[in-house]
Lab assay of single mutants.
Amino acid sequence: MPSETPQAEVGPTGCPHRSGPHSAKGSLEKGSPEDKEAKEPLWIRPDAPSRCTWQLGRPASESPHHHTAPAKSPKILPDILKKIGDTPMVRINKIGKKFGLKCELLAKCEFFNAGGSVKDRISLRMIEDAERDGTLKPGDTIIEPTSGNTGIGLALAAAVRGYRCIIVMPEKMSSEKVDVLRALGAEIVRTPTNARFDSPESHVGVAWRLKNEIPNSHILDQYRNASNPLAHYDTTADEILQQCDGKLDMLVASVGTGGTITGIARKLKEKCPGCRIIGVDPEGSILAEPEELNQTEQTTYEVEGIGYDFIPTVLDRTVVDKWFKSNDEEAFTFARMLIAQEGLLCGGSAGSTVAVAVKAAQELQEGQRCVVILPDSVRNYMTKFLSDRWMLQKGFLKEEDLTEKKPWWWHLRVQELGLSAPLTVLPTITCGHTIEILREKGFDQAPVVDEAGVILGMVTLGNMLSSLLAGKVQPSDQVGKVIYKQFKQIRLTDTLGRLSHILEMDHFALVV
């Protein structure tokens, strides 16, 4: 994948999101292997301009796509893939009243899908469409860049269908997702969380590099694949309309690839034109409109599966009536509230959605109805927002919020430890010299600072030695090549209790 991002070429006709291997024109390309080798690009942008032909009021008969309808489940399912879809609609009884809503608040519980998330729908649909058009064949390999849930859905379907599955996901995604993927037989590649989507090191860039190296491999490409919004247009939206008897006044959905909100909203605009569509985008993402909503100094966020630093091709923002931004604290607070007060075992993005819903639905009156999409299960986040310690460490809970008995030293300040200034190293000294210094002084790690004293990161003896043994660096290389740029900081005025929580999850903390 090139470091400079080429513009994806656009073909003359058809839909841009065809499933299957992508040609340089962004659509299915038939021909000899030699032709494909000559024409197939190194990668295709996940934010390529959409060429979708959908228009409100256009006859369904003019759609270029294969459409399906929700099917009634048999008493005995032939395999677990038949437990994807037909998820329950559940009334939220307490939270709406707590925040003064007059309307009825309903939750579409997508964590009841077989793999635990709304992404099971698009995973199965992308595979079925690729099999139907002859792209996927027995023994082929599926590769997908994902925040985890699409990966789980694909790995689940691949396990049943017999495909090899490789999932490329950023490091910030939970260990629970990784464990589930491994249990399903998927191979996992992790990428830096802070890598831009168009960087060769991003999950998108690495996935395309693997595709170019592995024979008979395919990126189904949830960011561009029409099967993504079509899955929701054909099934999720129809289920909502049936469950609500066609009567709903507002739908609120958090947005990642945009397939969920695009597919549902398009069908609702056709069948229930008075329904307002509300999009939820986390602070630090750029999906919301108008652009002024996205202006923030924050560039990272903890909530998973929603928000991006690019506009995915499948996201149709014209069908969203209003956007709201959400933050991590309210997302996790509301997710825990949904679990504790409503018994809905949902993930953090569901918290984002409901946090926005109780604001947006203030305009609705008694007798009206708001539906929220709860995308995934708490299963993926047992060591994250479900953990009091994690919430404390991230600053989303305060010590006084917890009532468990603490040891005698818990409320003492870090400054009472009488710490001395640490050994520091410059980023320009060599790895070999740094190892000598650390061994001589008896230290395992040291902060790396520039000549102005600005902290650049941390270097550890173990990481340097393993990097040297693996051949990633040489003793003569500058130590700046092996620094940890993500590390926890703590102030002298913070409590030892807070430091204790940090050290339970990290090997060190830097006192500043």
Score class of each variant (00 low, 15 high):
16 P>A: 07
251 L>D: 01
236 T>P: 06
230 L>T: 15
255 V>G: 07
86 D>V: 14
124 L>P: 15
55 Q>H: 12
35 D>V: 10
142 I>G: 08
202 S>E: 06
128 E>L: 09
113 N>R: 04
249 D>W: 01
274 G>V: 05
2 P>G: 10
63 S>E: 08
104 E>W: 03
237 A>W: 01
137 K>H: 09
108 K>C: 01
114 A>H: 10
145 P>Y: 04
211 K>L: 08
26 G>L: 11
228 N>R: 01
232 H>K: 10
35 D>Y: 11
23 S>I: 14
25 K>F: 08
80 I>G: 10
56 L>K: 08
30 K>I: 04
261 I>N: 03
107 A>Y: 05
33 P>R: 10
257 T>D: 01
240 I>C: 01
213 E>W: 01
16 P>K: 15
17 H>I: 15
113 N>T: 06
202 S>R: 05
175 S>K: 08
77 L>G: 06
260 T>I: 09
207 A>L: 01
128 E>I: 14
55 Q>M: 15
82 K>D: 01
164 R>W: 05
16 P>D: 05
242 Q>Y: 10
215 P>M: 08
266 R>L: 01
79 D>W: 05
239 E>F: 04
100 G>Q: 15
11 G>C: 15
273 P>V: 09
34 E>I: 01
163 Y>G: 01
138 P>W: 09
269 K>D: 01
109 C>H: 01
78 P>T: 09
186 A>M: 06
23 S>Y: 09
225 N>C: 01
158 A>C: 01
33 P>F: 01
81 L>F: 09
230 L>D: 06
240 I>G: 01
68 T>P: 11
195 A>S: 01
43 W>Y: 12
118 V>S: 08
220 L>R: 04
149 N>L: 05
17 H>E: 09
218 H>E: 03
207 A>K: 01
174 S>W: 01
81 L>W: 01
196 R>L: 10
155 A>G: 08
172 K>I: 01
39 K>N: 12
242 Q>A: 06
6 P>E: 12
259 G>I: 01
145 P>N: 01
276 R>V: 10
203 H>C: 06
159 A>C: 01
135 T>V: 07
142 I>C: 05
10 V>M: 11
87 T>N: 08
164 R>V: 06
22 H>E: 14
177 K>R: 03
192 P>Y: 01
9 E>Y: 01
184 L>K: 01
235 T>Y: 13
269 K>V: 01
270 E>F: 09
167 I>F: 07
183 A>W: 01
18 R>S: 10
31 G>M: 01
152 I>F: 01
190 R>K: 12
267 K>P: 01
144 E>C: 06
242 Q>L: 11
159 A>N: 11
130 A>T: 07
140 D>T: 07
58 R>C: 06
16 P>L: 11
58 R>A: 15
67 H>Y: 01
246 G>A: 01
138 P>L: 11
208 W>G: 01
3 S>L: 10
158 A>M: 08
31 G>Q: 01
133 D>W: 15
58 R>F: 08
153 G>R: 05
62 E>I: 14
142 I>Y: 01
74 P>G: 10
105 L>M: 01
13 T>I: 08
142 I>M: 08
143 I>V: 05
236 T>S: 10
175 S>M: 01
59 P>C: 14
106 L>C: 15
46 P>K: 01
216 N>G: 05
195 A>Q: 10
114 A>T: 09
113 N>S: 15
27 S>I: 15
179 D>S: 08
254 S>V: 13
264 I>R: 06
180 V>I: 06
213 E>Y: 03
61 S>W: 08
267 K>R: 07
100 G>I: 01
235 T>D: 08
192 P>S: 10
48 A>S: 10
180 V>F: 01
245 D>Q: 10
272 C>T: 08
275 C>Q: 04
113 N>M: 06
209 R>T: 01
211 K>D: 01
71 A>F: 09
136 L>E: 05
19 S>R: 04
125 R>Q: 12
11 G>A: 14
118 V>L: 10
37 E>V: 12
135 T>I: 04
163 Y>K: 04
169 M>S: 01
104 E>C: 10
